[in-house]
């Protein structure tokens, strides 16, 4: 089994069900770890969901002076371990995607862990389970690959060629690899 999280921003309807659901998950302490934001409400109602990509070599862990960010054997990047986190917030600045959240009260960083209690049993994380518009999905790796190929082809059909700064455009769906 080899499942991944798959996001499609344009499908987002801004309902924030994923955030409400995130609070429901075990060990999330009733705090959501994902984001739903408007691109620019004045211009459009386009919203987008955002959550951790579960990088293979996470920048957040690399900039942590306390070495507090651990990766499980499945590849899930966990919140800073509470005993080590010294509360410097380097992770929130190092993360290229702006994901880790910081709790000033308890002096610790917390972030998406793909609902570790669910995903380690191969059950979809709460956000992907409830997302009413399928903007967040928990699908097989192969399915994701074929969706990506089609998306890239569509972009190429439109006559857009990748440039140095376009790396994201052409591999638009990012994903946190989760393998069992």
């Amino acid at each position: 089994m080899n499942k991944i999280m798959y996001l499609e921003f344009e499908r987002c309807i801004g309902c924030r069900a994923c955030q409400a659901a995130c609070r429901e998950c075990g060990d999330h302490d009733a705090k959501e770890r994902n984001y739903v934001e408007h691109v620019d409400f004045m211009e459009s109602r386009q919203t987008f969901p955002m959550m951790c990509m579960q990088c293979k070599d996470p920048a957040c862990a690399r900039v942590c002076p306390a070495n507090a960010i651990q990766i499980t054997e499945e590849g899930v990047v966990l919140s800073a371990s509470e005993e080590k986190c010294i509360g410097c917030r380097n992770c929130t600045f190092g993360c290229p995607f702006g994901i880790p959240k910081f709790d000033f009260e308890a002096n610790k960083m917390y972030k998406c862990d793909m609902c570790y209690d669910r995903s380690k049993h191969d059950i979809a994380p709460m956000c992907a389970s409830v997302c009413p518009s399928d903007a967040i999905r928990f699908i097989d790796f192969d399915e994701m690959q074929s969706l990506r190929r089609r998306r890239t082809q569509l972009n190429l059909v439109e006559g857009k060629k990748p440039t140095e700064q376009d790396k994201w455009k052409y591999v638009p769906e990012f994903f946190g690899v989760y393998s069992d």
């Binding site: 309902c15 924030r16 069900a17 955030q19 409400a20 659901a21 979809a124 409830v130 997302c131 009413p132």
Partner: peptide, 17 residues
């Protein structure tokens, strides 16, 4: 979530959650 309910497939809105 109730993944096997054929109408909604486990999906919920924030009110439902």
């Amino acid at each position: 979530p109730r993944y096997d309910w054929p109408v909604t497939l486990g999906k919920l809105c924030p009110k439902g959650v």
